[in-house]
Design a binder for these strands. Structure first.
Lengths: 144, 144
DNA sequence: ATGTTTATACGAAAAATTTCGTAAATAAAA
DNA sequence: TTTTATTTACGAAATTTTTCGTATAAACAT
C-alpha cells in the first residue's frame, strides 16, 4: 500500500511519498533473513536454509518468494534457469519499521520499557553491555 | 493452546501450567492494551477506546473479546447484564513472550542490535537514559 | 404496556496468509 | 534419443484473522 502524509518543513508543506508500510508477514521475514544473511540466492537455497529449522515444502517457499517479488520486496534475476532472488529492502530499514510498530503495539511506545525488558530478560554479554554504554555516552554528549 | 513444562525448584520438580504460547494477534493485543491500561471494563468501553484511533464496529470488538475469552486470554464477570472483561495474562509476561519472538524474527536474536536501534531511532528522554544506565550498572555488579 | 435502546450469542462472509498439487519447460543423465 | 530431475507458473485448497448481520433478551423510557 501507499500512504501520503503531510510533513511540516520550515514554512512550507510538502507531500511526502511514504514508502512506509512494508509489512512483511512472519514467513516473508524468515525468507528475508536468509537473503540478508547469505546474499542473493535461489529458491532452492532459501528453502534448504528454512528446512533446517522447520518443515517447509519447496513450492510453498517458491510461491511466497514470487508473491514477495510482486510486492517489490525482493528483486530477481531471471537470466538463468533458476532465478536469483535478492532483498529489495535493507535489513536495518525493515528493522526500524518493525520496531516502531512493535514498540507501539506491545510496549505502548515506551522504548525504555522495551530496552529494560530486552536487557533484563536475556543474559547479554559483557561486551554488548559495554557497547550500549558507549551509545549512551554518545547520546548524552550530543544533546549539549 | 496450553503446554505443560517441568520447572526445577530447590530439590523438587513441579508441574507448571505454562501459559506459554499466548500469541495474541494484533487486534487482540490492542484490546489487551485497553484492559491493561484502564482495568476491567465492558465491551462498550473497549470499543469506544479503540474507536479513538481507528474504525471499529461494536460487534467486531465483541466477537474478538468472546474469542479471547474462549482462549483464556481474558476473564469475564457475567453477573451483570454487560459483562466485565479483564486481562487474564499480565502485561509484562506478554511483553516478554512477544519480545523473545520479535527478537528472533526481526533481529535474529541480537538484543544488542535491537536496543541500539530502539535508542538510536527514537529520541529517548534524559531520564530514561539514566534509568538504563542504572540498569547496566546493576547488571555489571551482578556478575562478579 | 409498548416501543426504543443496548447487550450477548453466533454463524458466516470477507480478507489475509500459508500450503500444496499439477502442468509445462528446461536441463541433466543414462 | 529417452528418461529423470529440477525449475517456474499458477490455481486453488486450507488456515487464520477480522468483520459483519441478524436473532434474542434485558433494561429503560414514555
Amino acid at each position: 500500500m501507499h500512504t501520503k502524509t503531510f510533513v511540516r518543513f520550515k514554512h512550507t508543506f510538502l507531500m511526502a511519498e511514504k514508502t512506509t508500510h512494508i509489512k512483511p508477514t512472519e514467513s516473508e521475514l524468515e525468507i528475508l533473513q536468509v537473503l540478508w544473511q547469505h546474499g542473493p540466492n535461489t529458491v532452492r537455497f532459501v528453502n534448504d536454509e528454512l528446512s533446517k529449522s522447520k518443515e517447509t515444502g519447496y513450492t510453498t517457499t517458491l510461491k511466497l518468494m514470487q508473491i514477495m517479488h510482486e510486492k517489490g520486496m525482493v528483486n530477481r534475476d531471471e537470466s538463468g534457469r533458476s532465478h536469483i532472488y535478492s532483498a529489495a529492502i535493507t535489513e536495518t530499514a525493515t528493522q526500524k519499521q518493525l520496531l516502531d510498530r512493535f514498540l507501539d503495539t506491545a510496549f505502548r511506545g515506551s522504548a525504555l520499557k522495551l530496552v529494560m525488558q530486552a536487557l533484563g530478560n536475556k543474559k547479554t554479554s559483557q561486551q554488548d553491555l559495554n557497547e550500549i554504554r558507549n551509545l549512551l555516552d554518545n547520546l548524552k554528549k550530543e544533546e549539549k
